[in-house]
Design a binder for these strands. Structure first.
Length: 835
RNA sequence: GCGGGUGUGGCGGAAUGGUAGACGCCGGGGACUUAAAAUCCCCUGAGCUUUGCUCGUGCGGGUUCGAGUCCCGCCACCCGCACCA
């Protein structure tokens, strides 16, 4: 027995090399074992691994290692979501090629990930910016193009006139470009779209099958897809035109008192010659789109002077241009029913339009006055001719039926989901494999010319898309006529890259994006782990892309991720000086109850615990922590205390505690004593129970509970005398801890004289007979309050337990001679005496 | 506004309707040491008239022999979406 310390600085690297050399985590798709695909959302190679990554990948790693121990052939790959804006920004700021910057980052981050000891199959690593990868992506794009799932149309975009580029909505801040600060313009550009709306119904219904997804994410996707059903019909207008409107409340049609159209509605645009109309349309465009602005925005309207004829009453209703009507939902026009829609109510109040009740609590309340807001709830239809007395649902069906019979409208389902605009006027992305032919329009690049590679010799000295102004790249010939033609210079949205990468992880043939048979072996992903921020876009696009490929016969799986887990953020206290400037954790120290700067002792305010971010300076660098405490301590911290779906507050005290526990386990592991003999039943029992409990906790992803179990068994084992049972407990702890602290476990395993890697060893067997206690603690209650506890043999009869309870001195004192009315006995648990 | 979540010691958090606070962190006391670090042991929800008693899981009710857990009504905070007709 030696009392040396575990030295991660030399042990970690040694075991990481041992895993790599033995190929311990290389997935064999020809294996006979059941398969398990464990995947964490692959990182963007921004430069450094941060604590959020460490937490995400540690969780996946524990699962992957555990599944391997349980006899699964595990696929646990890693790659790089390598296209995107930051690389281009770096190119502009640092005069470095985006590819060079990206690859340097990948090298650095890969080294960091290896230093944490993740059980990854690095043989399947790829970056989405590899021409092989994006070439296959281009092939998939062409598959979808040929299947009619891709189309081109003119669409409005945010245009930065200084950077000469399109901005995503989140890159527009207060109406200005986030980089240039220039006033952003709306511009119409021809853009490529993927027909995700073809799959709206399917994507919505598929959510029901995703039992192992968080309810929250399913609801967010459901709302995003936004199915609604109602009636689309046309009003006859006084100018002879027709005005199609969409409503989900056809039952309230007798309450309509006006029509409203969007500012960019064709009828409004047609009136644009009138300066007053033009001014109003301009006014509508100004309004901000932030939540707060919309909340307070006043309903504004402009009476066009045109009237619409009510389909049932024949009444003439005014048609307004209104700022609250959206052109891209429904038909861009609505019928206004002020009594039963809050927006219409506000509008009608402002412009003194009639507000009629057409839904009441019951049929007798026909004339009940309207309050100061619209009544959107259920009820009975009143003041509505043939609809009177019907329920809301009956009236909806009746009006839709009459409209359809009369040929002036039809029941319709409308979706909030829009088609996916995938064109980006950027260099660092997958070139869209299309050639614009003067004679044949947009033509697919012939398959034998894929990949369409990005040119290397580009510069970012001028604003705009480097592909567009490259001297030769876009010039090519039409594949049909052979005449000169131009390449598409837009690249694909980066979300396209992450929409099928899991298929490429499952199989990597040279001549195809994937092999359907290999995909069938691994998919769906058994556990997909990542941040909640991808609840909608990435996860919806990946579901769509998988379904689209299934619909054209490329694969058999429709849902890529069987189970989804969204982990919480890593947070940290913030520190600020009096002037509000932020300080990093290593610039401050505790001073009594408060905090001061290390530099000059100036008082520091410790603020809220929030997500680690550069702007708040509350980041902690994983490398520095690993250097101080080793990889296992950091991994252990990531799994301890907080449930994985909640935020994890980082603390210096916490990581020190984890570092201490690594050493404590190491000391215990060294006490494995081959010469020891004898049984220790209670300890053996605890070890067997821990084998079962830790397994259950890991499978439920309750890592914090698994950690607590390991602490408990550790404590019990430390206290026990040497025995064969104690040796068993020590070996058990090595196995139970090995998915979480793999370096320590390997070192201890080897020191105890075992051959091979503990990573390759199976999960320990438990003896079911040892799970059952032979003695139990019984709680004795009087009137529901605890009075005493006693130990009884497991399975003691109710009569015996009752007798034991009544024999207790404490119980008798509490009873104080009162008459016993009833005694409740729960075997092996408690006795409750009621007086 | 709509949808969802959370609320338990100083802190992170445990708890199939059955002994609330497992486990960890912080804190206090002690042992070892010339001393420190490391390590080990004990205490650590609040209060009280302290062999013990009372109170205690955001608040107010209810069901039950028994409620952190189930039901009804509130409050606070967090997240997502949002003029979607």
């Amino acid at each position: 027995m030696t009392d040396n310390r575990f030295d991660p600085s030399q042990a970690d690297g040694r075991w990481q090399r041992a895993w790599e050399e033995s190929g311990a985590f290389t997935a064999d798709s020809d294996s006979e074992k059941p398969k398990s695909f464990i995947l964490e959302m692959f990182p963007y190679p921004s430069g450094r691994i941060h604590m959020g990554h460490v937490r995400n990948y540690t969780m996946g790693d524990v699962l992957a290692r555990y599944k391997k121990m349980r006899g699964f052939e595990v696929l646990h790959p890693m790659g790089w979501d390598a296209f995107g804006m930051p690389a281009e920004n770096a190119a502009m700021e640092k005069k470095v090629h985006p590819g060079e910057w990206t690859h340097a980052n990948i090298e650095g981050m890969k080294k960091q990930l290896k230093g944490i000891g993740f059980a990854l199959d690095w043989t399947r690593e790829f970056a989405t910016c590899d021409p092989e990868y994006y070439g296959h992506e281009q092939a998939l794009f062409l598959d979808m193009f040929e299947a009619g799932l891709v189309y081109r149309r003119s669409s409005e975009v945010n245009w930065d006139p200084v950077d000469m580029t399109v901005l995503a909505n989140e890159q527009v801040i207060d109406g200005k470009g986030w980089r240039s600060g220039a006033e952003v313009e709306k511009r119409k550009l021809d853009q490529w779209f993927l027909k995700i709306t073809d799959f709206a119904e399917d994507l919505l219904e598929g959510l029901d099958e995703l039992k192992d997804w968080p309810e929250k994410v399913r609801l967010m996707q459901e709302n995003w897809i936004g199915k609604s059903s109602g009636l689309e019909f046309s009003f006859d207008l006084s100018n002879g035109e027709k005005l199609p409107v969409y409503t989900t409340r056809p039952d309230t049609i007798f309450g309509a008192s006006f029509c409203a159209i969007a500012a960019d509605h064709p009828i409004a645009q047609g009136l644009g010659d009138d300066p007053a109309v033009a001014a109003f349309i301009e006014e509508c465009k100004k309004g901000g789109t932030t939540a707060a602005e919309l909340e307070t925005a006043e309903k504004l309207g402009f009476d066009t002077g045109i009237t619409a004829q009510h389909p049932f009453t024949g009444e003439a209703m005014p048609v307004f241009i209104a700022n609250f009507v959206l052109m891209d939902y429904g038909t861009g026009a609505v019928m206004g029913v002020p009594g039963h829609d809050q927006r219409d109510f506000e509008f009608a109040t402002k412009y003194k339009l009639p507000i009629t009740r057409v839904v009441a609590k019951d049929a007798s309340e026909t004339d009940a006055p309207m309050g100061d807001e619209a009544e959107a709830g259920d009820g009975v239809i009143v003041n509505s001719d043939f609809l009177d007395g019907k329920s809301v649902d009956e009236a909806k069906a009746e009006v839709i039926a009459r409209a359809e019979n009369g040929g002036w409208g039809e029941g319709k389902t409308v979706w909030r989901l829009r088609d996916w605009g995938i064109s980006r006027q950027r260099y660092w992305g997958t070139p869209i494999p299309i050639i614009h032919s003067p004679d044949h329009g947009p033509v697919p690049v012939p398959r034998d010319q894929l990949p369409v590679k990005l040119p290397e010799d580009i510069d970012f000295d001028e604003p705009g898309n480097p592909l567009e102004r490259h001297p030769t790249w876009k010039h090519t010939t039409c594949p049909i006529s052979g005449k000169p033609a131009l390449r598409e210079t837009d690249t694909l949205d980066t979300f396209a890259n992450s929409s099928w990468y899991f298929l490429r992880f499952a199989s990597q043939p040279d001549n195809a994006p994937f092999d359907p048979e290999e995909v069938a072996k691994w998919l769906p992903v058994q556990h997909y782990i990542g941040g909640i921020e991808h609840a909608i876009l990435h996860l919806l696009y990946a579901r769509f892309w998988t379904r689209a490929l299934a619909s054209i016969g490329k694969i058999d799986v429709k849902e890529p991720f069987a189970a989804l887990f969204t982990q919480g953020m890593v947070t940290h206290e913030t520190y600020a000086l009096g002037d509000g400037s932020w300080l990093s954790p290593d610039e401050v120290r505790k001073d009594g109850a408060g905090w001061v700067t290390i530099a000059d002792g100036a008082p520091v305010t410790a603020g809220r615990v929030v997500k680690m971010s550069k702007s708040k300076k509350n980041v902690v660098d994983p490398d520095a922590i690993i250097a101080d405490y080793g990889a296992d301590a950091v991994r252990w911290f990531m799994l301890s205390d907080s449930p994985p779906e909640r935020d994890l507050p980082w603390s210096q005290d916490g990581i020190e505690g984890c570092g201490r526990f690594v050493q404590r386990l190491w000391r215990l592991f060294q006490q494995f004593d081959p010469a020891a003999s004898g049984e220790d039943q209670p300890l053996a029992r605890k070890a067997h129970q821990a084998i079962v409990a830790v397994a259950e906790d890991i499978e439920a992803l309750s890592f914090n509970k698994a950690v607590a179990r390991i602490y408990e068994l550790t404590g019990a084992t430390e206290k026990a005398e040497a025995s064969e049972s104690r040796n068993f407990a020590i070996r058990t702890l090595m196995h139970l801890a090995s998915p979480m602290m793999p370096h320590l476990a390997e070192e201890a395993w080897a020191c105890a004289g075992n051959d091979g890697l503990i990573a390759d060893a199976p999960w320990p067997e438990h003896d079911p007979a040892m799970l059952v206690e032979d003695e139990v603690t019984i709680a004795i209650q009087h009137k529901g309050k605890l009075r005493d506890t006693l130990t009884a043999p497991k399975g003691a009869s109710k009569e015996d337990l009752e007798a034991l309870a009544l024999a207790s001195e404490k119980v008798q004192r509490s009873l104080d001679g009162a008459e016993i009315r009833k005694v409740i006995v729960v075997p092996d648990r408690l006795v409750n005496i009621v007086t």
